[in-house]
Design a protein around this nucleic acid. Sequence first.
DNA 1: CGAGCTTTTGACGGTAGTCAACTGCGGTGG
DNA 2: CCACCGCAGTTGACTACCGTCAAAAGCTCG
Lengths: 253, 253
Amino acid sequence: MRSKHKINEAVAQVPCFECPLLTCEGLRPLTKGQLDFTWSLKSGELHLERGGQIVVQGSISPHLYTLLSGIAFRFKTMEDGRRQVVNYLFPGDLVGLQGAMDDPLSHGAEALTNVRLCVFPRHRLFEIYEKHPRLAFDISWLAAKEETALDEHLLALGRRKADERIAYLALFLLRRGKQTGLAMENRLDIPLNQTQIADTLGLSLVHTNKTLQSLRRRKILNWQADGVTLLDIERAGALANFDLPDEAGRPFI
Amino acid sequence: MRSKHKINEAVAQVPCFECPLLTCEGLRPLTKGQLDFTWSLKSGELHLERGGQIVVQGSISPHLYTLLSGIAFRFKTMEDGRRQVVNYLFPGDLVGLQGAMDDPLSHGAEALTNVRLCVFPRHRLFEIYEKHPRLAFDISWLAAKEETALDEHLLALGRRKADERIAYLALFLLRRGKQTGLAMENRLDIPLNQTQIADTLGLSLVHTNKTLQSLRRRKILNWQADGVTLLDIERAGALANFDLPDEAGRPFI
DNA sequence: CGAGCTTTTGACGGTAGTCAACTGCGGTGG
DNA sequence: CCACCGCAGTTGACTACCGTCAAAAGCTCG
């Protein structure tokens, strides 16, 4: 299964000094000393195709990853098959921190596009805290931001109707896309199918489909297999009750 | 409003060496050196009555808190009044970390019982990372655990029916209660009203009420104004598809 | 004893889930 | 080359879970 999607586990490693994230608008670059250190930590690169599993729910991962390019998502699955997409991962995001803190991982992560990940050995995580307080702080920063995003998702699932949820998700993804240079002003290329949208928003596939069509007819947004286009940002924002204060200067490791 | 619930902002401070959390089963105590440090950081104590606001959504808080005793919850409010309880806070939990990382706080926190909080000045947060890597690591640990809990809540809101959600919440709170010594084997004293349960689970008040009665009639659990009693842990666990692997050794600051 | 809050109840309506069938498309293989 | 398959998207009919409205009952407190 997994190897089907795995391209290469130990491909030509990009040195941290040439990390593509360094030139990413919206991300705060690292200093020379920090790069020396992260480079000494880096144990490899993982390349996966769309659909590849980055980490598997229930497994114990010896690795910690930083997403270098592409988009992925985290999800949880219940024994009876019900699935919930929990959040999306964009370049610069850390994957597997929860697994590093305590054993069996309570969620999986899957590549939505082809992805490249930077691999760190989990057992050296604590070195970051010992030697590079600024980087350690940034890990907490990222974790706190993740919490903020999850809070917003909870509000969406708990208190918004289907069309509001979809508008919310579109705006949320667009914001993340802009932060990481993947999105245009009102368009994000992201190959999400309707099943995945449904699993993100706590809706059934059928109802998701009908609601997407309604939003398309109302000329609010157009969500196709290859990406979302916001047709009317004003009305989408009003519908979702959500505006996007896009902050910059997000750190990464 | 707020002062109505505020008992005392700068009461007799418990020295960190006598911190009630040190003797709390389920929490990992601090070393002498760490206690010296946290004591130098501690700037006061905040005591609030039930209903008091610990932090206010949209505000910029200069403080960071650790909950010393009592139970509280975090929540988000939309402009039109819809509200979502996002998570619960038990002794040892950190409050306001998200606010410390980036300005206006995206959620509020309210005391569910009378609470005592330890106050740290936000601007000294980075010192922890510089001087006490172990404590810094613990902050990340707590943040990662918070993420895990939020993931679980998302699964509950997205993919569970009303009765399953209530059973899930009961089990979740019982687990947290046991970790912090507040719960018995199958009973947790927690003064949650039905509006708060509804706002946690993304349900309406009326439907929450009817579902609670159904669970009572089915002898699965009994949720009253003063606490929850699990009448049949087996069936509750099966209904919620959730079992409680209660870990110990949770850190705190 | 009445004000105000929480809980409870009943009736009704709507949003969203389930079931089932059909379409369209890309890939595979006969 | 085209039949066949599988998957994603679409549609309609029916159902049910859950929300809304309104009112009453129980409780605490002044």
